[in-house]
């Protein structure tokens, strides 16, 4: 792919998406991965997971982004979904108060099911629907980067030209969740917090960049997942991949015949 610094090895990080249906989980990922927005995304179909790299000054984080594939609807997400996830993005819709309550329930579920070190980002989506209405307050990102060009969160598909902010729309969808309320909840639970717009692209990169910065990389399990993060074997084998672990689709290994 594009210019890559071979001295920096990408660290693979599993990231799971959670949130009520229609809050824009898939749109956020589409914006992050392809810098695209599709007005009529149908409920997620077809992708096992998407990957996207996030370059920081001293590391490259390769996100493996798992979508719920609709399994959240009847609360039938399998334990496998949470397994070894190092990060989670919990999304709500700032124009729907009930969706924040749902998001809180997902945060609880993550605290119950997931790795205790998981980095959780709470994201209020659809900022574009209220930007015209409540102006400055909403458009100021909470976790504003200290210096804009300190670590441009570039991935290879993006040339550092973020899409222009959408023209302020009419305030048809009034804000139902105040920035302060969600921020207070996020602070209380130790979550990263952003308001974003998948449609306009506002703050989307920042969500993933901030997660990449926050993840303690020494606790990440290698893939394929072995044991747990504290696993002695996996720790010893982390660099070369777990020696005992087997890649089923490995063609080179598959070519060899039986030995007897």
């Amino acid at each position: 792919m594009a210019s890559e610094d071979p001295s920096v090895k990408a660290v693979q990080v599993k990231l799971v998406l959670l949130g009520e249906a229609a809050v824009g989980k898939s749109s956020l990922v589409l914006r992050f991965v392809q810098n695209d927005f599709n007005e009529n995304t149908s409920p997620t179909i077809g992708a096992a997971f998407l990957t996207q790299k996030c370059r920081l000054e001293n590391r490259v984080v390769k996100f493996e982004i798992w979508d719920t594939a609709g399994q959240e609807r009847f609360h039938s997400l399998a334990p496998m979904y949470y397994r070894n996830a190092a990060a989670a993005v919990v999304v709500y819709d700032i124009t729907k108060a009930a969706s924040l309550e749902k998001a809180k329930a997902w945060v609880k579920e993550l605290q119950r099911q997931a790795n205790p070190n998981i980095v959780i980002a709470l994201v209020g989506n659809k900022l574009d629907l209220v930007e015209g209405a409540d102006g400055e307050e909403a458009s100021t990102p909470t976790e504003a980067p200290e210096a804009a060009d300190e670590d441009a969160p570039a991935d290879e598909d993006e040339d550092g030209t973020p899409p222009p902010p959408a023209a302020a729309p009419a305030s048809e969808g009034p804000r139902q969740v105040s920035h302060a309320e969600a921020k207070a909840y996020a602070d209380e639970c130790g979550l990263l917090f952003f308001e974003a717009s998948a449609k306009a692209g506002t703050n989307v990169q920042d969500v993933f960049t901030e997660i990449a910065k926050t993840i303690p990389l020494d606790t990440i399990t290698p893939k394929p997942a072995a044991g747990g993060a504290q696993n002695r074997r996996s720790a010893a084998n982390a660099a070369a991949g777990d020696a005992s672990a087997v890649n089923l689709g490995d063609g080179a290994a598959a070519k060899k015949g039986g030995c007897c």
Binding site: I45, A48, G70, A78, Y81, R83, A225
Partner: peptide, 23 residues
Amino acid sequence: QYGGAGEVAQGFCRACAVFGGTY
């Protein structure tokens, strides 16, 4: 990993959901 058969079954269920199955 993780008990074997049960984890594999979850994997196939996720694959079904990814292709539009309802759970």
